[in-house]
Design a protein around this nucleic acid. Structure first.
Lengths: 419, 419
DNA sequence: CCATTTAATTCAACCGCTGAACAAATCGCG
DNA sequence: CGCGATTTGTTCAGCGGTTGAATTAAATGG
């Protein structure tokens, strides 16, 4: 709201369709459910009414719908408050819909199940070098892992409401992976390759699948895991490539075609090292995994991403001079890029995720230094730089959470779907 | 808070309040009015009903409200169509509310009046070197110009619904100008200095004032002037400093504190020329007005912004080698920065505004070249680079338009305000 | 001149929120 | 132990606003 005074905030004016009679209930279901999800302790109907501005009567009716739809349950132990009839707390249901998060990466496959409360109920990881595997083969193995996760969810009485697949590459419309360089994928049509597998077809209770970039889903995971934390931030994922997820006002910014966040080719040294992208001096050539390993004098450029980060962290912990210097240089390059982004987008939080998370103790100081050198507004309000709270494989968790988060944001979609 | 009238999509994770009964009409007023504003020819009630999904009965009721509130008029000459009762076209009223746009810049003051249809009804410009003037003096002269514009609007039967002031600097909450380096302003409290002047106090029919960055308002002006054009783009304003307005999905992105768009200190040459910001090799030192003039061998670094741009354009037109080389270098530097932004935000349109607009014929080629070199996704879909359709002083027009645009986006605010 | 066609209005029905009254459940005090 | 105070949650008439169909309005075409 800066730059504005006498500022009228508009309450959700959609450019899309008209607001029909039923939309009222649809919107209020979302308002109440979001409030329940965001509360730190189970709120009562009366409290929700006071907070939202709705009547207690309306809140009761809305809550009845939510309970009937298995999205909300009443907390059994009534929390003793002062005088008066004791309130019945409302909680998100832990045994209702759940989300399935999947990830295919260079050296592992992952699947996880997250319930409506955001709890990770299952998390399966299979290490495997997938670079030699064909896309069809990799996806077949992923489907098997997904079936395993789904069976575990069913055993818990959960209903999978959808699935999200994280891939390290550019994703186009319809689940088409245009390019995933480190996997060696190009124009891989994921739904087509999964045809026949239960994941791909929305029959029965089987969910449809959305495919997204791993950096995007990791950023969403961070958003949900830190709620109510900052609602706008930059989430930088350092792997072989460097990706950024941009969260603006609580929503992931995807860009015109869904390809936002390409920070790896930010020019940190325009006359510097040539890059395979055709440019020169790209960030990736200074703060990418291979560049850091090379600068630290480590041979294994073929190391798995998290192994590489752990190796570097161990060496830095031990005070290895070459590693410390490599990390300082990488942090400076990263700081130049991050400062540029912060200047452009006026963000107050930067999250170091993926392989950068374990290296944050050494990367953070140079990043902070570059920010305070280059960001003009840093003098008025500081920029927070911190490691991601979710560690590696946060993309799968973020994807699964985004599935259930969609239900919280628009519960009518779930309510009208269940028999 | 991201923005003043940023269109919130209903399904977004907004913490907004509850939807009451009256909100229904409020939202539908906006839906119908926006549809009328966006139509290329005056739509009938029946057509609006079909497009929005509302009933004809509802649309009629809504339109009655809008006509009663002087926001909409019926087009008199009924456009002859085929058989059946002829439709009565609906238009935005040209004699209802209007917006006042103001601009204070280094070498001129401007005021303009824009009516609801987006037509610029009046545009007053006073050339004056404002650098020696005190903020209070500059604002007093601006207030006189505003009064003149207001009188002209009243003569046309227009009602000013609000005013927006563009300043070349960082604007904080409450209309506080934190820093406007080229004006020599620091922590200037605009509303306080205007106290007593009719602009500042919302008495009578006199509008309240919002203060905003000139690059932001210029970008909004471009958005409205090109509608229905691209809904996401980067608008780069080249003056003494370089500012960027970021429009994402039809709304100006303001950043966490309203200070987004600082592109002038994008690192195009990290080991390059030192900059007054403390960094090195900032874009401003290569593509700012002073840098271009110096490289072209022009002495007058003190030239007014538009004069400087015109001078350079004239010289380039005449084939002056030094000027052509200076513009090529500036374009390359600009292209490096723009490519970084496009990579990050996945935008498909870049607009060269302000002083860059007349120089676009020479700046565009190197910018395009850098984009195609450095933007990975450019291969799949091209990035458009073009000059701004509004010339200089577009910020005042953008500000005035933003005032009336706010009414279109939330007509209930106007309807409940008129006696 | 009348059937046809499309536009706009009217009106009873209905949906969902409101506000107030009422029932439920617990605490505090005598 | 009992009764008022207090707060929660539900019930119900009322009402704003949309819906859908019927009705009126105003043109074209044979």
């Amino acid at each position: 709201m800066a730059g504005m005074w006498q500022c009228q905030v508009v309450t959700s004016a959609s450019t899309a369709g008209a607001v029909r009679q039923g939309s009222l209930r649809e919107l209020n279901l979302a308002v109440v459910l979001r409030r329940i999800a965001a509360a730190d302790r189970p709120p009562s109907r009366a409290e929700l009414a006071a907070r939202t501005g709705l009547t207690r009567a309306t809140v009761s009716a809305v809550v009845d719908d939510l309970i009937a739809g298995r999205l909300v349950v009443e907390a059994e132990p009534a929390p003793r408050t002062g005088a008066g009839r004791p309130a019945r707390g409302l909680l998100l249901a832990a045994d209702g819909p759940a989300g399935l998060g999947l990830e295919v990466n260079v050296d592992y496959l992952a699947a996880c199940v997250v319930d409506l409360t955001g709890t990770v109920r299952h998390h399966l990881v299979r290490r495997a070098d997938l670079r030699p595997a064909s896309p069809a083969d990799a996806l077949a193995r992923l489907a098997a892992l997904a079936a395993e996760a789904r069976a575990a969810a069913v055993r818990d009485g959960l209903t999978l409401a959808g699935a999200a697949l994280a891939v390290p590459g550019l994703v186009g419309d319809g689940g088409l992976v245009r390019l995933a360089p480190n996997l060696g994928w190009r124009d891989v049509d994921v739904p087509a390759l999964l045809a026949g597998h239960p994941l791909a077809e929305p029959v029965d209770g089987v969910p449809p699948l959305v495919v997204d970039n791993e950096a995007n889903l990791a950023a969403l995971g961070e958003l949900y895991a830190t709620a109510p934390g900052p609602r706008s931030f930059l989430h930088v994922t350092g792997e072989i490539g460097i990706g950024a997820g941009i969260v603006l006002d609580g929503a992931l910014y995807r860009g015109a075609r869904g390809w936002s966040g390409e920070i790896g080719h930010f020019p940190v040294q325009p006359q510097g090292r040539p890059c395979r992208c055709g440019g020169q001096g790209c960030l990736e050539r200074y703060a990418g995994q291979e560049a850091i390993l090379a600068a630290a004098g480590l041979p294994g450029a073929e190391l798995p991403a998290d192994t590489a980060a752990t190796r570097l962290a161990d060496l830095a912990e031990g005070g290895d001079p070459a590693t410390l210097a490599a990390l300082a240089d990488a942090g400076t390059a990263l700081g130049v890029a991050v400062a540029g982004v912060v200047n452009l987008l006026d963000l107050d939080t930067v999250v170091l995720g993926g392989g950068y998370a374990p290296l944050a103790p050494w990367l953070r100081p140079p990043v902070v230094a570059e920010i305070s050198r280059r960001v003009l507004t840093a003098a008025w309000s500081p920029v927070t730089v911190r490691p991601a709270v979710l560690g590696a494989q946060s993309a799968a968790v973020g994807g699964a959470t985004s599935v259930v988060r969609r239900i919280v944001d628009r519960p009518v979609g779930w309510l009208t779907r269940t028999p």
